[in-house]
Design a protein around this nucleic acid. Structure first.
Lengths: 97, 97
DNA sequence: TTGGTATATCGGAAAAAGTCGATATATATT
DNA sequence: AATATATATCGACTTTTTCCGATATACCAA
């Protein structure tokens, strides 16, 4: 985990918001049934009110930082949080920072 | 504490470095005697290899984010870490993020 | 009060990030 | 194969951040 990339990924209102939504998918994405593998890009885009390309890029920034992970199922890509990364982040802040 | 400002403040190599230096001032600033009130700007600037104005701005960004605090003594401004902020940050990541 | 040193602030040039529309790719359906 | 849908990538433009030099301010010492 690269601290700097993680903090950069977190330095954006929309991306923070997406992470929070993904914490409770049932609450924030009631349209989509089943959340085992995450929430698909379209649902996130709709809620974020940004263009598809922007949301897609934001998700990939979050993923490169290790904060979320993706699963491709058919034509959909589902994204969900990688909770381990958040735990690791708090540890890094306590030790290295 | 504003998450976003904190993460932005942490999204810079030099600023992260400064925070790490300030964690062990005796080790990283052996020239300066006494660290109760922190390390002065000049010492940090010298070590960072950036201009005085840049370092001064960076310190003020870190301070606005609440991560460090300053004390003016004569012509010097001493900066030191605000450890409470780091604790609060880990709590925010665990709860709100 | 004059000059010296430490820090802060201002203005700007260059680099990076934000954001979009257009297009490409991958998959599904007929 | 042709079409439709979901996502990713590209190119361009705008806004923000980085980082500097110059200047201002605050304090100290003679």
């Amino acid at each position: 985990m690269n601290h700097l990339d993680v903090f950069k990924a977190l330095s954006n209102k929309a991306r923070l918001q997406i992470l929070q939504w993904l914490k409770d998918p049932e609450v924030h994405f009631p349209d989509q049934p089943g959340f085992e593998s995450g929430v698909c890009v379209g649902q996130i885009q709709q809620k974020a009110g940004l263009t598809q390309s922007t949301v897609s890029e934001y998700l990939s920034i979050l993923q490169r930082a290790g904060l979320i992970e993706s699963t491709r199922v058919g034509q959909w890509t589902y994204y969900k949080r990688n909770e381990k990364a958040f735990i690791e982040l708090t540890q890094i802040i306590q030790k290295d920072l």
